[in-house]
């Protein structure tokens, strides 16, 4: 188990949990399809942001959020 912030590029990770006390961001990530059991891939690391692929879309997330997403390599 690791945080997405330490993940490698172009490697699909499986989300284990979203480690935050802010309930609404967890729910929001859920609606985007980022929840336990789903896949997330880092496309690039830019400035202080991570570009990630969730489902079929690209999102920019900041390092705080990347750290909160706990995932595992298959």
């Amino acid at each position: 188990m690791m945080s997405l912030a330490n993940g490698k590029l172009n490697t699909p990770y499986t989300v284990n949990r979203v480690n935050t006390e802010q309930e609404d961001i967890r729910e929001f990530l859920f609606t985007l399809g980022c929840y336990p059991g789903e896949k997330v891939t880092i496309i690039s690391k830019l400035a202080s942001n991570y570009i990630v692929s969730i489902k079929d879309a690209r999102y920019s997330i900041d390092e705080d959020l990347a750290k909160a997403i706990i995932c595992s390599n298959h």
Partner: peptide, 20 residues
């Protein structure tokens, strides 16, 4: 969809830490 595309390459320049 998680494969790198040309768009991702463009992003890497346009949203680059120092070049942005």
């Amino acid at each position: 969809s998680e494969k790198q595309t040309l768009q991702d390459k463009v992003d890497r320049i346009i949203a680059h830490k120092w070049l942005g």
